[in-house]
Design a protein around this nucleic acid. Structure first.
Lengths: 233, 233
DNA sequence: GAGTACGAAATCGTATACGAAAACTATTGC
DNA sequence: GCAATAGTTTTCGTATACGATTTCGTACTC
C-alpha cells in the first residue's frame, strides 16, 4: 500500500506480475518496519492480504531470503531476519566495505552539479539536527549517499550497497536509536568527503574516508549499546 | 552458515525438499559449466529432468536470479547470466573488494596450522604449473583462498565471496583462459600474502595485497582479450 | 501435579491445470 | 523476393487442491 519509492509506479503496476508485486510489497513492509525482525511471515495470510495465491508469495519470500531479508526454515516458515545486535554489526561492517568501494569507484565520475546537490542535502541534514527530526535526517542521509553512489560503474557493487541499505533499514526500525552527537559528526564527515572528491583525491583515500564514516556510526552504536564483542577492524 | 554439525545431517539429506534439490542441481550445472552463459533455462524441461514439477524449479531459478547467476525476464524465461567480458570485469572487481576484506578480517584469526596447509596447497599449485594442469590449478587456487577466508567472522562477507566464486566459475567456463605467466606470478603473490599474515601485518596492508592479487588477474585477462573499456581503478 | 501421548488445527510443499503472453511459422499481398 | 500478418506452438504465470509436516492443546497416566 505505502509505496515509498515513487519511481515508475504507474508503469510498474501495469506490467508487474503478481510475484513481483508480492516481492515488492513484502520487501517494502520489511524495510519500512511494518514487519519487524522476528515477525512470522505466513504465506496464506500474506497471499490473502495481497489478493493473490500462495505460489507467487512463496516465490517472493524465497527471493527475499536470498537477499538476506528473511530467514526461511523448512516446513516451518519464514521470519523477518536479523534481531540481534551481532547482525547489525555484520551488516554495517559489510556495508562500510561495499559502500566505501562504491564511493571510490564513483568519485571520479561525480561532477559539479552532483557536489552542489549533495551540499544542499547535507545543509538540510544540519537543519534537521536543530529542530530534531530524526526521520527526515535518516532519509536525507540516504539521499546524500545515493548521490555519491549513483555514478558507480559497477552494477554489482551498487546492488550490494542497496541490499545493505535495505537490511539496515529493516534492522534499524527495531534496534537503531538516533544519536544526535554522532549525527553532528556525521554531517561534518560528509562535508570532508565532498572536499576530498572535489579535490580529486586518491581513490584509496576516498574509500578509506567513506568506510570510516560508516564504521564510526557502527562504533557509536556499539558504544551506546555497550556490546561486549567488538572485535573487527 | 553450513550445518556442519552431525546433528541433523542425515535427516537434512533425507528431507531435502524438491525446491532445494532443484536449486542445488541447477546451481551446480551452472557453476560446473554444463549450462554455459546464455543457456536458456526452460522450466518444464528442467522439471522433467529432475523428476519434479515446475513450481519448485521456478522457485529455485528465482533464487538463483537473486544471487546473480541467472537472468530472468518476464514471460520470456531465464537464461544463465554473464556472457560478455564486461560482466567478467564487474564480477572480478567486486570479488577483489569483498575477498580483500574477507582476507583482512580473517587474517588475525589464522593460526600456524592454517599457514602450513596453505603453503602445502601453494606448493602443489606450483607443481601443477610444471606438468600443465590448469583444472587442478584452479581447484587448488580456490582451496588456497578458502583457507584464508574460513576464519572470517562476518558471515555476510563470506557469503558474498562465495557468490563471487560461483559467478566466476560460471563465467570462467566460457570466457576464461589459462594464462601460465600470470599463474606463476599468482603463486608468488600467494607466498607474499602468507608472509604478511604470518608477520601479523596491518589489516589494511593485507587487504590491499589480497585485492591487488585479484585485480592483477583481471588486468591480465583484459590485456589478453585486449578489451577496450578498461576504466576502473 | 508433572510429564507424556495422542489428536486436531495450522501451515508448508508440490503436483496439476488452465489462462495469458511471447515466439515461431506459414501464408498472403505487394 | 521481401514484408506484414494471421495462426500455431511453446512457455510462462498463477490458482487450486491435496498430501506431508509441524505445532499446539488436551487428556491421560504415574
Amino acid at each position: 500500500m505505502t509505496d515509498t519509492a515513487a519511481a515508475g509506479t504507474r508503469t510498474a503496476t501495469q506490467t508487474a506480475s503478481k510475484s513481483e508485486q508480492a516481492y515488492a510489497a513484502v520487501k517494502a513492509r520489511i524495510v519500512d518496519g511494518s514487519y519487524s525482525p522476528g515477525y512470522r511471515l505466513v504465506l496464506a495470510k500474506i497471499a490473502e492480504d495481497l489478493g493473490v495465491s500462495v505460489v507467487p508469495v512463496r516465490e517472493a519470500i524465497r527471493r527475499l531470503e536470498a537477499e538476506g531479508l528473511v530467514k526461511f526454515e523448512r516446513n516451518v516458515g519464514a521470519t523477518v531476519s536479523g534481531i540481534d545486535p551481532t547482525e547489525y554489526l555484520y551488516t554495517m561492517q559489510t556495508l562500510s566495505i561495499v559502500e566505501g568501494a562504491a564511493t571510490a569507484l564513483s568519485a571520479p565520475l561525480i561532477g559539479g552539479p552532483d557536489i552542489a546537490r549533495a551540499r544542499a542535502v547535507n545543509a538540510e541534514m544540519r537543519a534537521c539536527l536543530q529542530h530534531f527530526d530524526p526521520v527526515r535526517f535518516t532519509r536525507l542521509n540516504q539521499d546524500f549517499h545515493s548521490i555519491l553512489f549513483e555514478h558507480c560503474p559497477n552494477p554489482h557493487i551498487l546492488d550490494l550497497v542497496h541490499r545493505g541499505w535495505n537490511r539496515l533499514a529493516s534492522l534499524r526500525s527495531s534496534t537503531f536509536r538516533f544519536v544526535p552527537r554522532r549525527a553532528h559528526e556525521s554531517v561534518d564527515e560528509h562535508e570532508a568527503l565532498l572536499r576530498l572528491i572535489e579535490a580529486a583525491a586518491d581513490a584509496d583515500e576516498i574509500e578509506k574516508a567513506a568506510r570510516l564514516h560508516r564504521s564510526a556510526t557502527l562504533d557509536a552504536y556499539l558504544a551506546q549499546n555497550n556490546a561486549g564483542s567488538h572485535n573487527a577492524h
